[in-house]
């Protein structure tokens, strides 16, 4: 499910992803409420972040996108209490985290809509998707994670 943010929500409105042709699949997938990863049908590697070829075998022929489960566990996290950057000043404290996805790779993200003290390394999380107001035509959303 893709949710519309209210004014105080995370990520702040000025922190929006922009895509290259290599990363477009990821951000468009998020816009549909899907966590999209890349899988190489030639060497079976699953890679994140997305690239124009599989860097394990350097093949671009076998690389395909697939919809991941959106499930994972907290690998590590920090509650950021100070970030002077525009937008983030207003959302501190926020929880930035590395999530170990069920499909293997680690992804940098945020854990939202919970008390920071309730997050622990190893906590099970599930992807959620935040669609930001954009001035361009892109139908992107930002994957974040919620505690299960």
């Amino acid at each position: 499910m893709v949710v519309k943010p209210d004014s105080a929500s995370f990520p702040p409105p000025n922190a929006q992803p922009h895509a290259s042709w290599e990363t477009r699949g990821f951000w468009e997938g998020a816009g549909r409420g899907e966590l999209v990863l890349q899988w190489c049908t030639e060497c079976s590697a699953v890679q994140h972040k997305p690239r124009g070829l599989c860097v394990d075998c350097l093949s671009d022929e076998g690389l395909v996108h697939f919809v991941a489960s959106g499930e994972g566990t907290v690998h590590s996290f920090t509650v950021t209490e100070q970030n002077q950057a525009k937008g983030f000043v207003d959302v501190c404290p926020y929880i930035m985290a590395y999530i170990r996805l069920a499909e293997g790779p680690r992804i940098l993200s945020a854990i939202t809509e919970c008390d920071p003290d309730s997050v622990a390394i190893g906590s099970s999380v599930r992807a959620a998707f935040v669609a930001q107001e954009r001035t361009d035509e892109e139908a992107f959303a930002v994957p974040v994670f919620h505690l299960c």
């Binding site: 990520p11 922190a15 929006q16 922009h18 920090t78 950021t80 002077q84 950057a85 930035m96 992804i107």
Partner: peptide, 30 residues
């Protein structure tokens, strides 16, 4: 001072999440 409104696709995987230098070290420490 991390993660302002960059339009660079290369940083799009950290920009929305408020990645800071200290934040990355903090996740290592945690």
């Amino acid at each position: 001072g991390g993660s302002g409104g960059s339009k660079n696709p290369d940083v799009a995987f950290s920009t929305p999440y408020g990645m800071t230098t200290v934040g990355s070290y903090a996740m290592y420490a945690k």
